[in-house]
Deep mutational scan, measured.
Amino acid sequence: KVILLEDVKGLGKKGDVVEVKDGYARNFLIPQGLAVEATKGNLKEL
């Protein structure tokens, strides 16, 4: 699961917690600054 930092077409809006494949999160969303891993600490910051 990841928390979206920006609106991502076809996935969700900023602040949404979405389930995506590990590779998509690690190789695209997180490096592009579009999402962060949905850890307990990150979820509390919402």
Score class of each variant (00 low, 15 high):
29 L>F: 02
37 E>N: 09
2 V>H: 04
1 K>S: 11
34 L>S: 03
25 A>I: 06
29 L>C: 03
16 D>E: 10
34 L>M: 10
8 V>E: 01
8 V>Q: 03
43 L>V: 05
13 K>W: 13
32 Q>Y: 14
6 E>C: 11
14 K>M: 07
10 G>S: 08
35 A>C: 04
38 A>E: 08
34 L>G: 01
28 F>N: 04
1 K>M: 09
1 K>R: 14
14 K>T: 07
9 K>H: 12
33 G>S: 05
3 I>N: 02
32 Q>S: 11
18 V>Q: 02
21 K>C: 12
26 R>E: 05
7 D>V: 05
10 G>Q: 06
10 G>F: 12
39 T>W: 05
9 K>Q: 11
2 V>C: 09
6 E>S: 14
18 V>A: 04
36 V>L: 11
5 L>F: 03
5 L>D: 00
31 P>F: 13
6 E>T: 15
21 K>R: 14
31 P>A: 14
6 E>D: 10
17 V>A: 05
4 L>H: 00
38 A>Y: 14
14 K>L: 05
7 D>Q: 06
6 E>P: 00
36 V>G: 03
13 K>T: 08
42 N>Q: 07
12 G>R: 01
39 T>G: 08
25 A>F: 09
44 K>R: 08
38 A>W: 13
26 R>G: 05
38 A>Q: 06
29 L>D: 01
20 V>C: 10
3 I>Y: 12
29 L>H: 01
21 K>G: 12
5 L>K: 08
27 N>P: 01
40 K>F: 15
38 A>F: 12
29 L>T: 01
46 L>G: 14
28 F>C: 04
20 V>L: 04
12 G>M: 00
36 V>K: 09
18 V>W: 03
38 A>G: 06
3 I>T: 05
6 E>A: 12
26 R>D: 05
10 G>P: 05
22 D>E: 12
3 I>M: 09
15 G>V: 00
35 A>L: 01
3 I>A: 03
32 Q>M: 11
7 D>H: 10
14 K>Y: 04
33 G>E: 05
33 G>V: 03
11 L>S: 02
6 E>M: 15
20 V>S: 03
16 D>M: 11
12 G>Q: 01
4 L>R: 00
15 G>Q: 03
36 V>A: 09
26 R>A: 08
44 K>H: 15
23 G>M: 13
24 Y>G: 02
38 A>S: 09
23 G>K: 11
38 A>H: 09
18 V>H: 02
11 L>W: 09
25 A>H: 03
45 E>F: 05
26 R>M: 09
28 F>M: 05
16 D>V: 05
3 I>L: 12
2 V>P: 00
45 E>D: 15
7 D>Y: 12
35 A>R: 00
22 D>M: 11
34 L>W: 09
34 L>T: 03
31 P>V: 15
